[in-house]
């Protein structure tokens, strides 16, 4: 494996996607009462001040033997990941978090005011997704400059890739030390607004059709791995997901 790198983002580089946060808040835009609107606005301000944006990542070579995919830090026979990484020679594994400040806001208000707790939860989900998107975009651009083609990012819990793999990511990326993510016995990350994922890279492009057929499928862990690209909803197995977006 290569070195583990860290990247810290400035909040200014990660514009707040209000619409997305409201979606997580269970409030499609435009239907909030003035009182709820005001409360949500206050929460957004407090949340944005509390977030830090940290990513750690490393590059791994991918090997395939029989039905087993060797990611360099773990082996898996996940079919979904096989499809996602088809044609890829390497992958960047990363972990991202918006930090303990956000976690504390969620904890504080979950105990004291469920509506605020719920709002911070929603804002946190938006923040981590925005961070992942920004990092994903940056790394794909940097690799593209060297002639590499990126795949949609893929997280533990997608399709048949087990949540248990989370432990491998946390260990391989030295997440606790680098960016402060720890894993509970129940495989939950703290801070909860954290994501681990893989981005596959190939030296030759994939056809549009293949890309579509291997799009990411999300079936598990509604909280931590909310990061999925919207177009992927239609391919997702979780038909009753409340964040599902139809075309």
């Amino acid at each position: 494996m290569g070195a583990i790198f860290t990247r810290f983002y400035d909040g200014g580089a990660l514009p707040f996607d209000r619409r997305e946060a409201l979606r997580y808040f269970g409030a499609p835009q435009g239907v909030l009462s003035p009182e709820t609107e005001e409360l949500f606005g206050t929460c957004v301000q407090e949340a944005l001040a509390a977030c830090v944006y940290r990513v750690c990542y490393a590059e791994f070579d991918i090997a395939r033997a029989g039905g087993v995919l060797d990611l360099g830090f773990m082996k898996t026979d996940s079919r979904a990941l096989f499809r996602n990484l088809e044609g890829c020679e390497k992958a960047v594994a990363f972990a991202a978090t918006v930090g303990m400040g956000m976690e504390r806001l969620i904890a504080r208000y979950s105990a004291l005011s469920p509506v605020r707790g719920y709002a911070f939860q929603a804002i946190g989900a938006e923040r981590i997704e925005t961070l992942c998107n920004a990092f994903n975009q940056d790394i794909a651009r940097e690799y593209a400059a060297a002639g590499w083609y990126a795949r949609p990012r893929f997280s533990c819990g997608y399709g048949d890739f087990p949540i248990a793999a989370q432990a491998n990511f946390i260990r391989a990326l030295d997440c606790t030390r680098k960016i402060g993510i720890t894993l509970s016995d129940g495989l939950l990350m703290t801070p909860s607004k954290s994501v681990t994922a893989l981005i596959g890279f190939s030296s030759s492009p994939r056809s549009e059709e293949r890309a579509r057929s291997s799009a990411v499928q999300k079936t598990d862990n509604a909280d931590q791995q909310t990061t999925h690209v919207r177009e992927q909803c239609e391919n997702c197995l979780a038909k009753d997901c409340r964040f599902r977006q139809e075309k």
Binding site: L32, L39, P114, V115, Y118
Partner: peptide, 11 residues
């Protein structure tokens, strides 16, 4: 009524 409003009323 959506969940946030239900919660605000509850509080």
């Amino acid at each position: 009524v959506f969940l946030p409003q239900l919660l605000m009323s509850a509080e």
